[in-house]
Simulated scan of single mutants.
Amino acid sequence: MKTLIVSMTFAFGLVAGSAIAADDEKKTPSPAQQAQQERMKSCNQEAKEKALKGDERKSFMSDCLSGKTASAAPAAPATQQDKMKTCNKDAKDKALKGDERKKFMSDCLKG
């Protein structure tokens, strides 16, 4: 019985330790996630400026995040050249190289 308890405790420690280690690794958000985060920031800021509360705020946030309001549209680059400049700058800021940079650029230019 004692060996069972010791084994279970050890196994739990391994699982918990690997979960904590996984949380420590910071993952960079995808371009789509970054766009959603920016949309969330701008919608929150606008709701705050309008001093919306309760159901009115919920309704506004829902519309804003789904793109039903004019302010919900992200400030997307107007041309392909502008997109390329923005994506290149982001890739440089993240110090991406090789295949990782290629994948990032592809995803960035699509989105």
Rank of each mutant, 00 (worst) to 15 (best):
K94M: 11
M105S: 02
A91C: 01
A72D: 12
K85N: 13
K94A: 08
K97H: 13
K85H: 09
P77A: 12
D90T: 10
M84F: 06
S106G: 15
A76S: 14
E100G: 05
G67W: 03
D107N: 11
A70K: 13
D99I: 02
D99L: 07
A70M: 11
K102Q: 11
A95M: 09
P77I: 02
K92Q: 14
N88K: 11
L65Q: 06
S71D: 12
A73Q: 13
P77W: 00
C108G: 04
A70I: 11
T79C: 04
M84G: 05
N88C: 07
K68G: 06
L96N: 12
G67E: 06
C64L: 02
A78T: 15
K94N: 09
A73E: 12
S106N: 15
S66Y: 03
R101L: 02
K92L: 08
K92A: 15
P74W: 06
P77V: 04
T86N: 12
K83W: 09
L65A: 01
K89P: 01
D82H: 04
S66T: 13
M105N: 06
D99T: 06
S62F: 09
D82F: 05
D82N: 07
T79G: 03
K103A: 15
K92T: 14
K85A: 03
N88F: 04
D63N: 13
T69K: 13
P74A: 04
E100C: 02
Q81V: 02
L109H: 07
K92F: 05
D107E: 11
K85M: 03
G67K: 04
K110V: 03
A95T: 07
K85D: 10
D82A: 10
S71V: 08
T86Q: 14
K97S: 15
T79H: 12
P74Y: 08
K110M: 07
K97I: 05
F104T: 02
G98I: 03
K83M: 09
T86D: 12
A73V: 09
A75R: 14
P74S: 05
D82R: 04
Q81T: 13
S106V: 01
A73H: 11
P77Q: 10
K94E: 08
C64Q: 02
K85F: 00
S66D: 12
S62R: 11
T69H: 00
T86V: 14
F104W: 08
S106T: 14
T69V: 10
G67D: 05
S71N: 12
G98A: 01
G98D: 04
S66E: 13
M84P: 11
K97R: 13
T69M: 01
K110G: 07
D90R: 14
D63H: 09
L65P: 05
L109C: 00
S66I: 01
T69F: 00
L109W: 05
C64R: 01
T79S: 15
K110N: 13
A76T: 12
T69N: 08
N88I: 06
G67N: 04
F104Y: 15
M105H: 05
K83S: 11
D93K: 14
K89Y: 00
S62H: 10
A78V: 14
K94Q: 15
D63L: 01
K102Y: 01
G98S: 02
K89C: 02
P74C: 04
L65R: 01
K103V: 10
D63K: 09
K68W: 00
K83V: 04
Q81N: 13
T69L: 11
K110A: 09
S106W: 01
A72Y: 05
T86L: 14
